[in-house]
């Protein structure tokens, strides 16, 4: 199973905090967004790999087709700043 957690604008916009899916549903990080967009409520914001920062097991990846493996934890989040 893959555990996917949402943070920042991705979480507030989709209304989804986290979900689990099988490796066949989300073989790549990009596919995690497809699952997210199905799970998010109708009318909520949709997100893609292109507009989000992605971390796999605490390491940032910028590769859309980064292959996941069973047990991976994926974080989808938005850039942030403050002070």
């Amino acid at each position: 199973m893959i555990k996917v957690k949402m943070f920042g604008v991705v979480r507030l916009g989709s209304g989804v905090k986290e979900f689990e899916c099988s490796l066949s549903e989300a073989p790549t990080v990009s596919a995690c967004f497809d699952v997210l967009n199905i799970k998010s409520a109708p009318g909520s914001d949709k997100f893609t790999f292109g507009d989000s920062q992605v971390f796999v097991n605490h390491t940032r990846t910028t590769k859309k087709n980064f292959a996941l493996k069973d047990g991976d934890e994926v974080w989808l989040m938005s850039p942030a700043a403050g002070g």
Partner: peptide, 24 residues
């Protein structure tokens, strides 16, 4: 703007906790 128009109004500076955790 992604920061001043979305992140800060929606989450404030509090929205940094998670990105900071992600990066140690």
């Amino acid at each position: 703007h992604a920061i001043s128009g979305r992140q800060l109004p929606k989450l404030g500076t509090a929205g940094l906790v998670s990105p900071m955790e992600a990066r140690g």
